[in-house]
Simulated scan of single mutants.
Amino acid sequence: MKSPKGSPPPEKDFHLSLLRAYIDSANDGIFVVCDEMKFHVANHLLAEWLGETEKSLTAHKQRLPITRFFGNAESKKLFKDKFQAVLDGKPARFECRLKPKCGEPRWVEISMNKVDIEAGDLVIGVVRDITERREILAEAHHHARHDDLTGLFNRREFERRLNELFESARIRNLRHTLLYVDLDQFKIVNDTCGHMAGDELLRQIAARTHKQVRKKDTFARLGGDEFGVLLENCQMEQALEIAEKLRQSIAGFRFKCNDRLFDISASIGACEITQATESPATILSNADTACYVAKDKGRNRVQLFYGGRDYMLNRG
């Protein structure tokens, strides 16, 4: 029976209308799902994010599961685990990635709680878009680990990874190699054409040479014209082959500045990381020493660190 014209609606209808107006005006996505994770309610904003309508999400006997809208198996598993915890009476808040077929991908924070009603258990969730925040954090994380000039890893990240390889060699008896790369003609370019030209040379060298190492390896700018390469799980024979490819790549490059061409080359010192290695600082020192010997022998060459008296005899 309808209310007489001009009279207020029944209290129940009024409260439902007010609740609906609230969830549809919210700046966050809001959903209600059953214990099978299928939609019973989705506000306009969430339906828009998912590239659907509320009707398509909540149609009787055709309700869609919320899990179909997650970006990958990891996000789907995370949601299922948190959902089960909510059903067990533990409220949840977590971050995951939405990637609907007909909507924009986005990072979201989801908060969920269980509601007990006569018809069964329902879970109410609030979905907050945190894409911008995640992008800012990702950019900050990238800058903390990478060199601004070349885009390679920076010295801090290089040393962190060097420590990890040192520990894996010490504990698990793995073998790695460090290559210490020093450009031979960098000072000439800097003195002749200025620091901006020197910076451009470093950018071009980085873009040219990082392709010579394997994807799992670490290529970093250590400072100035010095670079470091960590070759993980790499026997010395293969490491020297990679070092030679790096040397050839740099030696085959001619840098042009103000109508002048500069022949560029590099001296490379190689040092093995084994269970017998004393410390990360020793590794860096030994590779640097080998690089110095390569320069002393005429530059544009790869020099393996031998250590001890044998190494000193090899210097000549």
Rank of each mutant, 00 (worst) to 15 (best):
Q238V: 07
R208S: 09
I188Q: 13
N163T: 12
T192S: 15
L165K: 04
R221D: 05
Q248V: 10
D147F: 02
F158D: 02
L149K: 04
G228D: 15
E159R: 05
D148H: 14
T177H: 04
E241H: 08
L246H: 08
C234M: 13
A239P: 05
N163A: 13
N173E: 14
H176L: 03
T218D: 06
D191N: 07
L152T: 12
L174Q: 15
A140H: 07
V229H: 05
M196I: 09
N173R: 12
G151W: 00
E200D: 14
D225C: 00
I250W: 01
H146K: 10
L162K: 08
L231E: 12
E164I: 07
L202F: 05
G223D: 09
E157V: 02
L178A: 05
I242L: 12
E157R: 06
Q235C: 08
F158A: 04
V181R: 01
L222Q: 05
E164M: 07
E159D: 15
G194W: 00
A169Y: 13
N190Q: 03
A144Q: 10
M236N: 10
E167L: 12
L202N: 10
R160F: 12
V189Y: 01
A197L: 00
E232R: 12
L174I: 00
T218I: 15
R221H: 09
L231P: 09
L246R: 08
E157K: 13
L152R: 02
V189S: 02
Q204P: 03
H176R: 01
A243Q: 05
V229W: 06
E159Q: 14
E241P: 01
K215W: 12
G198V: 01
G194C: 00
